[in-house]
Design a protein around this nucleic acid. Structure first.
Length: 546
RNA sequence: GCGCCUGUAGCUCAGUUGGAUAGAGCAUCGGAUUUCUAAUCCGACGGUCGCAGGUUCGAAUCCUGCCGGGCGCGCCA
């Protein structure tokens, strides 16, 4: 479809020359929502009206006069209330259908990001507790976005950054130690900022069952290490079972061990962006748009989380990625500016780092709000939701909404509504088509070669409409990749499924009319390919049968 | 108090860089199948796009103010 857009824009530019307009704004084509307004439309004459001192209608009319219809592309051009509407030639849509069958798995892919390496930092939940629903949203979103970027030709690496050091992790270790000693019958005070969740009690049980009391005298480091790697293992499993791929796991502790944190601090110091005050070392982030300067090394000599994070991003750039994308929960938004400040200070163009925030999930159970806190052990885990409603529903639901929307999630409601989840509507369309092919095989319908099939027989309004819709798929994928959004994919798939179901109810694919049967089999095959490709982007199965 | 996000049908949300008559799903009501899967289809009902101004040919979309909701404002991560 991209080429068509370009061709129309080209003809418009030629027409502009003919009516002697030299200066004109960028020609924008959009897809009208009203069917009667054609397949593409432009408001060009409105933007020209002021300069030419003519009413838009008049400009549009004279442009239309000079727009030669290109028989194989444009069937009709018309002026309407100042807009110029283009109607595509049917042949183009038939040609597109052939392309869909030919490209199959590759239909929807593009080379927008060819030869570009992009890294996505995703999930990166602190290993202090299991993944909860909120994390699940971020993970599903990030994974889908990564799929979309891959489909757009980027070389994508998905990385999980593990904050495996610092006070939180220490508290985790202290908590596990307390639980463990409790089990061994010792009286211990639970740490003030300890993690109170059930999962640590279970972990302590497992430790005791496996290794008895031999860790009674062990130092905190042992428990810290044990607890965090146990939790990481759980997270790894949760992600795997959600179909979420992580290519690389990066530990914060490694950055320290490799001296990268010190290195980056020295580097900033050399550039003159650090200063001392009240015994601490500060970064002049306010010079780069942050609201105030930030501490990078504490009074006690240890470095802050920000220092590690700067080192981490410096490391990513050194690994040669052209572009970095971080998917963060919106609760981290206060952190965006200081990190971007650091990126600029280190001499990287700030456009090379995009931080995409997804809004947090507002959780409730039967209408009652649930405040989630990993520390207090109050949360609904991703695992729980997946067990209750299934992976497909979970992923589809999380990707259906814009990442900016403050999602309401009620577990009871989700359970109740999951049989009605739109994902089944889409999957069902796919299953129905598969069933048609099974039937065709049983009936021994021979498939003709595509060149021999008369696609012009696809002439009902339902068929024409589907053909147009199918042609939009590559544009949808591309625009998702450009805007770092994913929700148009589920919405689009629902539309495709909806049009298919309508078609299915009104017309038969397998009929007495052999020629028509061939044409319609081609059409539904095209639909199936688009559904499959779309579902694959979402990490959801496309069932043959339901 | 300051900052970011957000407010669209009873509910959950779309609405493509400002476009033509604001759309889906769910819910409610009514209808459709001896046919390739009824997890389907068709129809009806449902709106002051939070409120008030402004910008312009044109605003749900941009600007300002107010109101409501979420989140963040540590030498925590």
């Amino acid at each position: 479809m991209m080429e068509i857009r370009e061709k129309i824009i080209e003809s418009l530019q030629e027409a502009l020359k003919k009516i002697k307009v030299k200066k004109y704004p960028e020609v924008l084509l959009e897809r009208p929502k009203e069917r009667g307004h054609g397949d593409f439309t432009t408001n060009l004459s409105f933007s020209l009206a002021k300069e030419l001192k003519k009413p838009p209608q008049e400009i549009a009319k004279s442009l239309v006069k000079h727009l030669e219809a290109r028989p194989k592309i444009i069937e009709k051009v018309e002026e309407a209330k100042g807009f110029i509407n283009f109607f595509l030639a049917e042949e183009l849509l038939f040609e597109n259908l052939i392309q869909i069958l030919r490209k199959e798995k590759n239909y929807g892919k593009s080379e927008t990001g060819k030869d570009k390496r992009i890294q996505i930092e995703m999930v990166s939940v602190n290993p202090t507790g299991p993944l909860h629903v909120g994390h699940g949203r971020g993970a599903a979103f990030a994974d889908t976005l990564a799929n979309i970027l891959e489909a757009s030709g980027y070389q994508v690496e998905r990385e999980y950054y593990i904050n495996d050091i610092g006070t939180q992790i220490e508290n985790l270790g202290k908590s596990l130690r307390a639980r463990y000693l409790e089990l061994l019958g010792e009286e211990v005070e639970f740490p003030e900022y300890g993690y109170q969740g059930e999962y640590l009690i279970e972990m302590a049980h497992r430790l005791k069952d496996r290794e008895g009391d031999k860790h009674r005298k062990e130092k905190i480091e042992f428990f810290t290490q044990y607890a965090s790697s146990d939790i990481i293992e759980g997270i790894r499993k949760d992600l795997e079972d959600s179909g979420i791929r992580i290519d690389s796991w990066k530990k914060e502790s490694d950055l320290h061990r490799e001296g990268k944190v010190k290195e980056v601090i020295d580097n900033l110091k050399k550039k003159g962006y650090l200063y001392e005050r009240e015994g601490a070392l500060w970064f002049r982030s306010s010079q780069f748009g942050d609201e105030k300067d930030r501490v990078i090394k504490k009074k006690d000599g240890s470095s802050t989380y920000l220092a590690s994070d700067i080192a981490y991003h410096e490391d990513k750039f050194k690994r040669g990625f052209d572009h970095l994308v971080n998917i963060w929960g919106a609760d981290h938004h206060g952190y965006v500016e200081r990190l971007q400040a650091a990126i600029s200070a280190l001499g990287h163009p700030k456009e090379n780092l995009d931080i995409i925030l997804y809004q947090l999930v507002k959780l409730s159970r039967s209408g009652k709000p649930v405040a989630m806190s990993t520390r207090k052990g109050e949360f609904i885990t991703l695992r729980e939701v997946m067990d209750e409603v299934g992976r497909d529903v979970t992923r589809f639901s999380f990707c259906m909404r814009s990442s900016y929307s403050h999602l309401d999630f009620d577990l009871e409601l989700a359970k109740k509504e999951s049989p009605e989840n739109p994902v089944y509507y889409v999957e069902y369309a796919h299953a129905r088509i598969s069933s048609i092919f099974k039937k065709a095989k049983e009936k021994k319908v021979k498939r003709k070669k595509i060149q021999e099939i008369d696609l012009k027989l696809l002439n009902t309004p339902e068929e024409k409409s589907i053909l147009k819709l199918l042609a939009l798929f590559p544009d949808i994928v591309t625009s998702c990749a450009q805007n770092y959004q994913v929700h148009s994919i589920p919405n689009y798939l629902r539309e495709v499924a909806s049009e298919f179901h309508t078609f299915y109810n009104r017309h038969r694919v397998l009929s007495e009319d052999a020629e028509l049967t061939q044409a319609r089999l081609t059409l539904v095959k095209g639909i199936r390919i688009v559904l499959r490709n779309g579902l694959r982007l979402l990490g959801i199965k496309a069932p043959e049968r339901m």
